[in-house]
């Protein structure tokens, strides 16, 4: 055996183990790194699809208007014109997909209006607010106001 190597042979054995471990690591890494990792940046590109494929709960006002064009028309020019339908009626994508599958429940006119219009010092001054003890006769708001066009002419 080569004289130089003779007393370094045990070190060579250790070096082979380290080199082997390194190669193994590189091979395992090459196999295990998820597809599409790094395509758009340091992440798995499939994660974009994962995030985009979450199911909808709110259908969006466009979908509501596709069928309920009469309501859209009735809201024209009112202060409530630009409020999303589901802001009051709740998430209705199931209804929008198949109107027979789910019927929306009519919001309770005594509470839903107060969600926004109950007096509170923190609300912007310009926003119409009422104290139900002083405003109206204690009945549902809808007895005087049309929620889709609340202005009393």
């Amino acid at each position: 055996m080569n004289g130089w190597l003779k007393d370094r042979e045990h070190l060579a054995r250790m070096a082979v183990i380290f080199a082997g471990a390194l190669v193994l690591f590189l091979v395992v890494r090459a196999v295990m790194v998820p597809n599409g990792f790094g395509t758009y940046g340091h992440f798995r590109s499939g994660a974009l699809k994962d995030n985009a494929s979450h199911p909808l709960s709110y259908a969006g006002r466009q979908a509501c208007g596709d069928c309920h064009d009469d309501i859209v028309a009735s809201r024209k020019g009112s202060k409530h014109e630009r409020i999303g339908c589901e802001a009051c009626h709740g998430p209705l994508s199931v209804h929008a997909d198949d109107p027979d599958k789910m019927k929306p429940v009519l919001p309770d006119a005594k509470t839903i209006c107060l969600t926004c219009h109950l007096e509170n010092v923190t609300k912007p001054k310009s926003f119409p607010q009422i104290d139900p003890a002083e405003h109206g006769d204690g009945g549902p708001c809808t007895s005087c106001h049309n929620p889709h066009h609340p202005e009393i002419s």
Partner: peptide, 10 residues
Amino acid sequence: LWSDNISERS
């Protein structure tokens, strides 16, 4: 590592 070498030099 199955080495038996503990010579002075090693």
